[in-house]
Design a protein around this nucleic acid. Structure first.
Length: 106
DNA sequence: CCGTTGACTCTTT
DNA sequence: AAAAGAGCCAACG
């Protein structure tokens, strides 16, 4: 029963696709999962929480589908995530992101 | 294999 | 607007 593919094949795909997101843009958990070919929105987030390569995998670039920041377990916490996003050139409005402008579509 | 959990999302109160 | 409920899927014990 190959329930788990080593470290989790699913997570691997998440990392791979996330790396494709251009700088200055963000993606949502839903879009990411959909691109991979699954609807495991939650699994995507869980995979990112494991985040083995924070440098290669900018998890801060992943936000909720409604534009909210979501969560950030890495150093600095949610606050740091917002800072990083702003640094990428993403404008945050009242704690929310304009997915119309910054939401990257695969 | 089953039950619980979770960086989610959608619909209904 | 905010909270609660239902649905979704992968990882873990």
């Amino acid at each position: 029963m190959r329930r788990s593919e080593g470290v989790g094949l699913f997570a691997k795909k998440v990392y791979a696709y996330l790396k494709k997101v251009p700088k200055g843009k963000v993606t949502t958990y839903k879009e990411l999962a959909n691109t991979i070919g699954s609807k495991a929105y939650r699994a995507v987030g869980s995979a990112l929480s494991e985040n083995k390569d924070p440098v290669k995998v900018p998890c801060y670039r992943v936000v909720c589908s409604d534009g909210t920041i979501g969560r950030y377990s890495a150093a600095g916490g949610l606050k740091k995530k917002i800072e990083l996003l702003k640094k990428d050139g993403i404008k945050i409005k009242n704690g929310k992101i304009d997915l119309q402008r910054f939401g990257f579509r695969f």
